[in-house]
Design a protein around this nucleic acid. Structure first.
Lengths: 352, 352
DNA sequence: GGGTAGCACTCACCTGAATAGAGTGCTAAG
DNA sequence: CTTAGCACTCTATTCAGGTGAGTGCTACCC
């Protein structure tokens, strides 16, 4: 699933059925209680019918393989990032969501309203039902088709450029021109752009315009240039996300270290690292899971990130996911992220 | 300054010069170190030339007046909210900012760009130089003058309404109409609105339109109605703020209680309480300070909030301020908030 | 009467020792 | 291979004693 962990199936093979069951029990138990789990507990409460001593032997094997570790000599065992990885990859039984739940979610994520609002709703929804932090990248469309351009003269040398793309998104910006334009000049420029390029995507529009300019040897209209700049700049800027439920993270004991928490929150504000992580999932198809140090970012050392790309009209346009402690309920979180990605795609499709 | 504390000047009178100096020393010292300050420290390090025993006597008086309290019998004294209040109201010597600093700030808060960007910059600036959380309300203009309305037909029954107000703010929304409108209908409607109401503020526009409708007994154009709704809704919605540097708060020992911190952050997200508090400062002229429980919101019990209204073109349009532990450097924070409010007003005035 | 020295007292905090409890590794026997 | 038994390790808790900071009170002095 994840290239950096291609060796792990081999590790699973190294574990016999019994060891796998044991690991599974330990991980599930630790996820539930947050307490190191000892041999006696396993012996008593797992379906394995073995004495504590035997459990200890197997535990020692697991520890040697780096799947569990003990905080100190006389504590039970705690899963390591690798342990979680094996668990997630081959031991986890995902509980699919009931239809009722799915339709509840769909209901909450009603389409309509601006893209930004829908995205925010998805993020809030993720954080609410998982009790973790939800994160949703703003969709970045590959082909931004211009539908309509409009120039509106304001005072002096300021012109408002309005650009409608993809039938629904509206961008506007005020530009400062080097000379005043008359009303009719503005209309003319807009009419020209609309006629020549309506429906074509922005890169094409740009190409076309430059070509045209060369052909006619005419210095390009400053207005049009500005409109283009704005459009391309805007599609490049779209590396952004909406975060929700950060405060949920403060409820987890493993996050109670204020300093660590601060660094995590600062990473959220900085956005760069998180964005980079999400980007990695953009072209992986399906759920992607980063456990603990796997993410490569120190601030996420004790966190797991579960992501899924979402698509509109068959094209992947963004990634969403949740961020929480490594000790999270993967069996619930995974299907939730999965379904939400699909629902978000659908909601964006029929937006407005 | 604050109506609920009108009785406090009387309390200041009840303190002789010496007691005032003592209180001042205790507060300043506690702000500096965060440690309860004991009689010996005061005796040794304050300009008061008194023995510890005498200091203790005076301290006991201050405690009786509710200005200081001790965490336990053998700790030093710590200022109470009332103590800070007296300190701030009559003992504080505010250090005005040097001209260099002011021009630095002005430089950082360069005008230009959208309102939202300037506001965000102000908030970030506040939080950065105070190491507290900065908060800036979005400006709400009393008179939102319509400059230009434009209707743009999209597919089917969807129409994009574009409204330019105040020479620079652009609002747009897509509305669903009950029937398709032709291009010329749209132009006609826009032309009518522009001609009749351009430059008038929105409430006037609304009035005028409704009157007109009655006079001509004509059912009002659904488009125009929608445009109006949008405009008024939008000016009502403007109860919003931009927060920055929340993570700064995690550096203060008194905030290290994760649970309290969580509640505070949730209040930030909820926005309602904070907004209500800021509103109270909207029509107070000048700096307003809420210390500890004075704010009336439990989550702010150990916080102080320093606010100042800011104005564009002579009209107060918003409030900004900082939020931090009661133990903050009021002497620095107050002038910073004050100056920033003025700079923000100026930057918004010449925006674009 | 205000200021001060002295003193007994309180309380938080640190230290070290003792103890209980959980869990381990190892070994030897089944 | 499994398991019972045992010695061992380490944490957490408790308790006692000691220390230091700071207080309130009282008696004394100017």
């Amino acid at each position: 699933m994840n290239p950096t962990h291609a060796h792990l199936p081999a590790m699973t093979l190294a574990l016999n059925e019994r060891a796998q069951q044991l690991l599974k029990f330990v991980v599930e138990r630790y996820i539930r209680d947050g307490q190191p789990v000892g041999s006696r507990t396993v012996s008593r409460e797992s379906s394995l019918d073995l004495s504590p001593a035997t459990i200890r032997n197997i535990m020692a094997d697991l520890e040697e393989l780096g799947l569990v570790s003990s905080p100190h000599t006389s504590a039970g065992r705690v899963p390591t990032a690798h342990g979680y990885r094996v668990f997630v990859d081959s031991l986890l039984t995902v509980r699919d969501l009931a239809d009722v739940e799915v339709s509840n979610l769909r209901h909450q994520l009603a389409p309509g309203g601006e893209t930004k609002r829908i995205v925010a709703a998805a993020s809030a929804m993720l954080s609410e039902i998982t009790s973790l932090a939800g994160v949703v990248m703003l969709p970045r469309r590959e082909h931004v088709a211009s539908r309509h351009v409009e120039f509106m003269g304001l005072t002096q040398n300021r012109v408002l450029v309005i650009l409608v793309t993809n039938e629904k998104e509206v961008q506007n910006r005020i530009i400062h021109t080097s000379r005043p334009y008359t009303q009719s000049e503005l209309q003319q420029a807009a009419a020209y752009l609309n006629e020549a390029f309506s429906g074509r995507d922005l890169p094409a529009m740009r190409e076309g315009l430059i070509e045209e300019m060369h052909a006619t040897r005419e210095h390009m209209n400053q207005l049009m240039l500005a409109a283009l700049e704005m459009a391309s700049e805007n599609s490049a800027t779209e590396g952004d996300y909406v975060l929700a439920g950060q405060t949920n993270l403060m409820n987890y004991a493993e996050m109670s270290n204020v300093e660590r928490l601060r660094q995590l929150f600062e990473a959220f504000n900085r956005k760069r690292d998180i964005l980079h992580l999400l980007d990695q999932s953009l072209h992986a198809n399906g759920i992607q899971i980063f456990i603990g140090e796997e993410s490569g970012y120190e601030v996420l050392d004790e966190c797991s990130v579960v992501t899924a790309p979402y698509a509109t009209e068959g094209n992947v346009v963004g990634v969403l996911g949740v961020i929480g402690p490594t000790r999270m309920h993967y069996d619930r979180v995974i299907p939730i992220v999965d379904v939400t990605a699909r629902l978000l795609g659908a909601a964006l499709n029929q937006a407005n």
